[in-house]
């Protein structure tokens, strides 16, 4: 659904940077590694939160 607010492992607030990451690395053509470094998401536990997230709100939103 929505990106988790914090990193599961360390507790850093990662959702803060998700929309920028999405726009620059996944929709844009920048290197995801450089974008994450630039955003200050340094630990690999926080990085996997961003990289592996599948945003499904738009898929479920027509229902209920």
């Amino acid at each position: 659904m929505m990106i988790p607010v914090r990193c599961f492992t360390c507790g850093k607030v990662v959702s803060e940077h998700y929309e920028e990451f999405q726009a620059r690395a996944q929709a844009g053509d920048e290197d995801p590694q450089k974008v994450l470094d630039d955003l200050g998401v340094n630990r690999h536990c926080c990085r996997r939160m961003m990289v592996s997230h599948a945003d499904l709100v738009d898929v479920v939103s027509p229902y209920q």
Binding site: M2, I3, V13, E16, E19, D58, S61
Partner: peptide, 15 residues
Amino acid sequence: VADKNIPIIKLNSGQ
């Protein structure tokens, strides 16, 4: 709120 850019939930029209 310390971080102002955290998305809580995306709302569609009517929600």
